[in-house]
Design a binder for these strands. Structure first.
Length: 645
RNA sequence: GCCGAUGUAGCUCAGCUGGUCAGAGCAGCUGAUUUGUAAUCAGCAGGCCGGGGGUUCGAAUCCCUUCAUCGGCUCCA
């Protein structure tokens, strides 16, 4: 007999060799029906894996990511089984579960193309196989046998994978006639996979290596109930409506032109206004926080980027150098502002008393991104960074980091922007050669970042080996409407450029010292930030530009026209002038008292409320109430009167 | 750059296997209507069917090529 301990710390006894499914069944058949995997002593296992020793067992229902993971992994195998029947001779790469669903990388042979129009057929075959209620069997074999098995099948991908595994760790899973190399865990059978949809086909390099063969990746998702699938698909549809590319077009915020060139955004009047507001909003705050504003040209001599090292590393991927009438002289569109800012630093001598120097610029940069990479406003070839560089002493690093984190938090909070992840990227300690800068400095900087984040109450993920070669960093990431992750703000320590540009300051000891450089952006780029801002707020608020604040129009298609009418109404009312007057009058006071200059957010009636009213909320204070447009105008009038007396 | 798909009026799209196939709705314009929950009625205007080349008596429809876009991969200072 063995003891099985449950999450509530109760213990029950079972025969050795019992499996999780049997244990669950002994508690209640209802429970057994609802679980998809179990964690046994910390490892996620198949429900049918025998347990032979005293163990702690946790059952995973659909809500748990372990359950979904297992479910989708088995779904991937089901799809592979269907593919093997439909495409004889097809070879398989890897087929994991992902955050939402699963995929399988396959090689159907050189002359065979699987395209999206083939997906329904594959789904039919999957349905057919699922109905047969195939059991999923786990088989453990030796490395030699496994190699032999897949070599006979002629599957070079699997044999390559196996040859990298250690002997004794090899398990196969058999589903019907389909046997796959797999660590598991899996569902006991395919009966529970009731609803699935294959979503898309894409190319993917074998092992993610550009130089290796491109396989066909098929994405899908599955659920234990049709209703869940329907809801998921409906959610995807809704998400598509929030896509900033769609909203940007509909609301005439920005456009692209083939004639101007791909990836070069054109800001339409309304979008440009939004963009300018963001610049003004941030600039005001930067001045308050001890930044100086600088400005640098859009081109630079190629030599500049050779000194900075950017030319060597990124020159081939940039807009290529342009020649001038002067023989032998070449310029480049600036791919980053840093070298320019370094030269601003070097333009004047510095004492330790001047540090830290915080130099900010809304600098437009140009990068020749790969054709296939361009994506709306989130990945473009010309964009404006809200860039800044802090030059400081090593001991000031932590304090500067805290200041920057504080600024990021302030900006995001002010814009009602709550969902982001913060990631700290450290160097790979086992491969120190890859990085520039002394051991001591790296340790100091990494410690400073981690401590600063903790002290600012920032939840961070720490990832080793992701640091840039020139220093560790802290990035702020967000997801777009379709779930893709984008980097916005970034704070990076740099030991490289101060060396390359031979930057110095005179210390208290009257000796020359090397300053530390911190690169930093809050929005990342205005383009990307606007994109993410649109997608984050769309659906919640209508998008529009209020006199003094970003306002979001409702995304539900039905209301677009209505929103435009509201917009016109307000534009034609005297609100704009009123608020301008207000800001004019209290402008100086505001600055001194640090009063926030963020008046009103308008939310135009959402789906259910079929009304021509608007609900009004004041930023940071919540709802003020629902009112008609005329009332809203009067309300603002009163507010402004009270405020400016 | 790589794999797959798409490209028809400002927008969303219909035009199947080549021969009234240049269409619809919304937006726009003109006029009427003034009716409280975006969408009253009538009329008008809008497109070299992404660009180039080819097959054919004939192509939006088939083929090639190029550009752009979409979904991924790779990349991402």
């Amino acid at each position: 007999m063995i003891n099985i301990k449950f999450p509530d710390n109760s213990v029950k006894q079972f025969e050795s060799g019992v499996n999780s499914l049997e244990i669950a069944n002994s508690i209640s058949p209802g429970l057994a029906r609802k679980i998809y995997a179990s964690t046994v002593n910390g490892d996620v296992k198949d429900l049918t894996r025998p347990i032979n020793e005293d163990s702690a067992v946790i059952f995973h229902k659909w809500e748990d990511k372990e359950a979904k993971h297992t479910f989708w992994h088995t779904s991937a195998h089901l799809m592979a089984a269907a593919l093997e029947e439909l495409y004889p001779g097809i070879k398989f790469g890897i087929g994991p579960a992902i955050e939402n669903g699963f995929y399988y990388d396959v090689d159907p042979g050189d002359d065979v193309v699987i395209s999206e129009s083939d997906l329904p057929l594959i789904e039919d075959k999957m349905r057919e196989l699922a109905k047969r209620n195939n059991k999923v069997e786990r088989i453990e074999i030796s490395k030699a046998d496994a190699l032999k098995l897949f070599a006979e099948k002629g599957d070079e991908y699997k044999t390559e994978l196996i040859s990298e595994l250690e002997d004794g760790t090899i398990s196969l899973y058999k589903l019907g006639n389909f046997t796959d190399l797999c660590r598991g865990p899996h569902l006991p059978d395919t009966e529970k996979i009731k609803a699935f949809k294959l979503l898309s086909v894409a190319g993917a390099y074998w092992k993610g290596d550009e130089k290796r063969k491109m396989m066909t990746r098929i994405y899908g998702i599955s659920f234990p109930k049709q209703k869940l699938l329907d809801e998921y698909l409906a959610m995807l549809e809704e998400a598509k409506k929030r896509d900033h590319r769609r909203i940007g077009k509909e609301l005439e915020l920005f456009a692209f032109s083939q004639k101007v060139g791909m990836g070069l955004p054109l800001w339409l009047p309304r979008g440009a206004e939004l963009r300018q507001r963001l610049i003004d909003f941030l600039t005001d705050e930067l001045k308050r926080r001890g930044y100086t504003i600088v400005s640098t040209p859009h081109v630079g001599n190629v030599e500049l980027y050779k000194i900075s090292g950017h030319y060597e590393k990124y020159g081939a991927d940039s807009f290529q150098p342009m020649n001038t009438p002067q023989e032998g002289e070449q310029f480049m569109l600036k791919p980053m502002n840093c070298p320019h800012h370094c030269e601003i630093y070097n333009a004047t001598p510095h004492s330790y008393k001047d540090l830290p120097i915080r130099m900010a610029e809304f600098g437009t940069v140009y990068r020749y991104e790969q054709h296939g990479e361009l994506h709306g406003l989130t990945r473009v070839r010309s964009f404006t960074q809200d860039d800044a560089h802090h030059f400081c002493e090593a001991d000031q690093l932590k304090d500067e980091f805290k200041r920057i984190i504080d600024l990021v938090q302030w900006v995001f909070k002010s814009l009602d922007f709550n969902e982001y992840d913060a990631q700290i990227s450290l160097r790979d300690a086992s491969d120190k050669e890859r990085y520039i800068g002394s051991d001591e400095n790296w340790e100091k900087a990494q410690k400073a970042i981690i401590e600063a984040s903790a002290e600012k109450g920032l939840d961070t993920i720490v990832v080793e080996g992701e640091a840039a070669f020139y220093g560790p960093k802290l990035d702020f990431m967000v997801r777009d409407a379709i779930g893709r992750e984008w980097q916005l703000g970034t704070i990076q320590v740099d030991y490289n450029l101060p060396e390359r540009f031979d930057m110095t300051y005179i210390g208290a000891d009257n000796q020359k010292h090397r300053p530390v450089l911190i690169h930093r952006a809050i929005f990342g780029s205005l383009e990307r930030f606007v994109a993410v801002l649109i997608e984050n707020t769309a659906g919640k608020f209508p998008l529009w530009l209020s006199p003094d604040q970003v306002i979001i129009l409702p995304i539900s298609e039905k209301y677009h026209d209505y929103s435009k009418k509201v917009l016109n109404f307000l534009n034609n009312s005297d609100i704009r002038t009123l608020i301008d007057e207000r800001n004019e009058k209290i402008g100086k006071k505001v600055r001194d008292n640090e009063l926030k200059k963020i008046p009103y957010l308008l939310i135009i009636g959402e789906k259910e409320e079929k009304s021509s009213t608007v609900s009004v909320r004041r930023q940071g204070e919540g709802d003020i109430g629902v009112m008609k447009l005329e009332e809203f105008v009067n309300f603002i009038r009163e507010e402004v009167k009270n405020e400016i007396g």
